[in-house]
Design a binder for these strands. Structure first.
Length: 273
DNA sequence: TTTATAACCTGAACGC
DNA sequence: TGCGTTCAGGTTATAA
């Protein structure tokens, strides 16, 4: 579920329930996540959450004593619900909030992560998981000049290159396929073997597709507290992802499915070269 | 240094 | 119905 637009949607959804609220309790129901959840996360208890930020696909809940770093992995989701709401299997981490509400991290595959960064450990952005990240795709730090320079002499495929968080953050498997389709670039093409005008278009389309998805994610915000807690996501706008064998919406050619680096990849062999 | 691959997990969907 | 296989939206650690 969580690509960058869903993480941003989640951030917007939880922010009003968390910001300037005192954290009343923290419960680790299952510590075996990507890394074990350490007891020091309890440091947050008794303090107010001052900001809820996002860096790449990490959610950062900042307080004056330190920050909680959350990652949703492949199957994670966050829900705000009343404390008397029945707990679900795979509700692994619970943050008790003022007003008998809780934020629950639900993650069946446990690829997600919960970490604590103490204020005394230096700037949050120098945390080992954050310090080597590339630019945010929607920021001015990511533009056509940057992408062109980053592709220079690269022998890896363009899809792997834009999915690499050192190149740019937040471009997951779905939006990599979509942005490449919109740019007319075949996913297997070597990054260093693409003309500048086409990379300019790709940088624009990465921004465009993510912006559109965030807007659509925004429409699911009202459903955030719904019983099933699932943020609806939008398949109707996808041009190639999960459309193997179906006709290209532009030319009618059958959409191809291939595997690049163990990830399903979809493209139109006529529109993308 | 760059690139490719294995590993971490559970559950849903599918075929037999 | 039940069992085995395959696949899934992410990221790091390790090997080549």
């Amino acid at each position: 579920m969580p690509e960058l637009p869903e993480v941003e949607t989640t951030r917007c959804g939880i922010e009003p329930y968390i910001i300037n609220r005192r954290i009343q309790s923290i419960e680790i129901r299952e510590s075996r996540m990507r890394w074990p959840i350490e007891e020091c996360v309890h440091e947050l208890v008794g303090h107010k959450a001052e900001r809820v930020e996002r860096r790449a696909k990490y959610l950062l809940i900042r307080s004056k004593v330190g920050s909680l770093i959350l990652h949703l992995g492949m199957s994670g989701s966050l829900r705000i619900c009343p404390t008397d709401h029945e707990l679900k299997k795979h509700d692994h981490f619970i943050v008790g909030l003022e007003g008998d509400m809780e934020m629950r991290l639900h993650d069946p595959r446990r690829f997600g992560a919960v970490l604590w960064h103490d204020i005394n450990d230096g700037p949050l952005m120098e945390h080992r998981l954050l310090q080597h990240l590339g630019p945010e795709p929607l920021s001015s730090h990511f533009d056509s000049n940057y992408l062109v320079a980053s592709c220079s002499n690269r022998k890896t495929s363009i899809k792997q290159h834009i999915m690499n968080s050192k190149t740019v953050v937040g471009v997951g498997n779905i939006y990599a396929s979509e942005a490449l389709f919109r740019s007319g670039i075949k996913p297997t093409r070597k990054a260093g073997n693409i003309s500048k005008p086409r990379l300019v278009r790709l940088s624009e389309q990465i921004k465009q597709v993510l912006s559109e998805a965030i807007k659509q994610g925004g429409t699911t915000l009202r459903d955030f507290l719904r019983e099933d807690g699932k943020p609806g996501y939008f398949k109707q706008r996808l041009q190639v992802y999960d459309r193997a064998g179906k006709p290209c919406r532009d030319c009618g050619q059958s959409i191809q499915k291939i595997v690049i680096s163990n990830r399903s990849t979809f493209y139109c062999s006529k529109c993308q070269r």
